[in-house]
Design a protein around this nucleic acid. Structure first.
Lengths: 342, 342
DNA sequence: CTGTTAGCGCTTTCAG
DNA sequence: CTGAAAGCGCTAACAG
């Protein structure tokens, strides 16, 4: 008695077995030859390669993930896509990771710790091969979640303490904030407001830099701090500008924590007939698209986010391959860009 | 003789079998109960649910994809993330798809047919459950690739011929272009330039709309077409503005194919002391962030991309579940937003 | 309505 | 350096 016939479930896809048969070797040899894992006779490798190419073989990511308990996904967590900074970052990440055979899973946290944790849990189900997260600060449970995932992680945009044992590519947001404030002080400004929205970690670090410089100059005054938890936008920048220039005694410069706010402020100044920088200087942060086109062009801090993306992706690649990483922390620096608004 | 002992490869993850054992049913019943596939005794469903919750069970996407030949990924192809339009679109797509249990795989084509095809091939390896692509026009081989994937597809931002049998959510870019041109004509403008960059399909459709309106008014003149294949940006808008206002006889209005160009033009006008709209009117397209903040505020066409994203995702969801779709083509319309620049 | 059986396509483990 | 066997965790197919 033979077993009753069953409809095969095959997908029509070219499989490893097909290649093995064509190259007249065992499936596992094909697997090894194609991945470059363990030593395989060069002659066999060539034969396998040829057969794979001829048949148009492409490994099945799902099967691979199931068998190896590791997918070819890299999960990336960023706060917001409407901030051009993260778009540039992502672009650089993808263009490094994709040629290496990794698919990026993008998770947008909306600056929300709860959503970040939720996204992380969802993404970890896919057993990503690596993880890219924005910033260092997050609630302890989320941190544990990341640690227990047992996956290489690189932190973006900030710098960790050297002893922390974390991998990161970024810059000192505080130092950058301090540098911009010093620039404004050097220009002779005394009452320099700091205006921020969103109030994420990096914004607060810039705030700390501003405070530091102002205190050292003996010019710090809490009423100069304008902190608005609302999401950052051009429109909000305009609103904040109006509020701030109404302040008495008047401020002579405003340092916005992000260029979109500063751009909105410059436009509001135009509408109101407030002269920049004569009546009040304006500075931003990140050197986003359009800042050089403003009237007057916006003084800002250029943060090399494309470099952050590229270097972080490269570091993660090394970690995922088990290769040694030269330095766990890479400081990409920043650049003061002085334009007409200051 | 017993077989030699083997180290188990288990991952420590809670599996379907664990739940089955805990609920004292067979694994397949757990599978069916949790997916809601086929009818399962409500009492059993409850027992399974309870056990799954208690154990913290989460299905393994890789195993599921391998067994069912369908992943929980949805591939989304968009031209560019630096165009805020697509960021808004994506945001809406994700917020519809994620609660339904789907992971979005974002592919950025950079307006390049070759890159689009390549991305598509990569993404199809992951056996996505559905596909979202921008626009209708693409080379025949790519079209075939999509068709042969055997996956539901929804096209974004444009409208297909009713008979084409394609699913799409969008608007008539041509009608919108025509409407804006008519508005400018109504305002008394006669020499209305059309200025475009990137020159993708949707831009060309807007151009066609402008041509249509200009020809009907007996005012069409090929020298009024300023087409620049470079990527769209604020800076380019400024450059194009300078070129166009140098033209003799002078133009009295410029219709830019996208708001970023128009914003750049408005800023260039400010720098040059050209009065808008008195010396020349300016109009844009898409109503991007900041257009309402410009000086003067920009007249534009609002395209409801969040609605496109949400509706397209909802349509795809229905298709993926095999549910009937009311209309294969959804026209979300557009809205003329008349502000100070015209 | 529930269960048994047999894979999905790949890689790990253990032998040669 | 190569291979055989045994799963990874799940669902499709086919009974009962």
């Amino acid at each position: 008695m033979t077993a009753p016939p069953r409809r095969p479930r095959s997908t029509g896809r070219v499989t490893l077995d097909d290649v093995a048969r064509a190259a007249d070797v065992s499936p596992i040899t094909v697997s090894r030859a194609l991945r470059g894992e363990r030593a395989v006779d060069p002659a066999l490798v060539a034969r396998v390669r040829e057969a794979a190419d001829r048949l148009g073989y492409a490994p099945d990511p799902a099967a691979r993930a199931l068998a190896s308990r590791r997918s070819t996904h890299v999960a990336v967590l960023i706060p917001m896509l409407s901030n051009a900074l993260f778009v540039d970052l992502l672009e650089a990440v993808q263009s490094t990771l994709r040629p290496a055979g990794y698919q990026t899973l993008i998770g947008v946290t909306h600056y929300d710790d709860v959503e970040e944790a939720q996204l992380l849990r969802e993404q970890l189900l896919h057993r990503p091969a690596g993880l890219l997260v924005t910033g260092l600060e997050r609630p302890e449970p989320t941190r544990r979640l990341i640690a227990q995932a047992g996956v290489p992680v690189v932190h973006l945009m900030e710098l960790a303490e050297p002893g922390a044992g974390l991998h990161c590519v970024g810059l000192s947001q505080q130092a950058a904030g301090e540098a911009m404030t010093r620039h404004l002080l050097d220009r002779g400004h005394r009452r320099i407001a700091f205006a921020a929205a969103q109030l994420d970690t990096r914004t607060r670090q810039r705030l700390a830099g501003w405070r530091q410089a102002m205190q050292q100059a003996g010019l710090h005054d809490p009423v100069l701090e304008w902190l608005n938890p609302a999401p950052s936008s051009l429109a909000l920048g305009g609103v904040m500008f109006e509020q701030i220039i109404g302040q008495r005694p008047p401020v002579d410069a405003i340092f916005f924590c992000n260029d979109d706010l500063a751009q909105g402020a410059l436009l509001a100044a135009l509408r109101r007939g407030v002269r920049v920088p004569q009546d009040v200087a304006v500075a931003g942060f990140n050197d986003l698209t359009g800042s050089d086109q403003m009237v007057p062009p916006l003084t800002t801090v250029r943060t090399p986010r494309a470099e952050v993306g590229a270097q972080a992706a490269a570091m993660l690649l090394a970690l995922m391959r088990g290769e040694p990483v030269a330095r766990p922390g890479v400081d990409v620096g920043y650049e003061l860009v002085v334009r007409g608004s200051s």
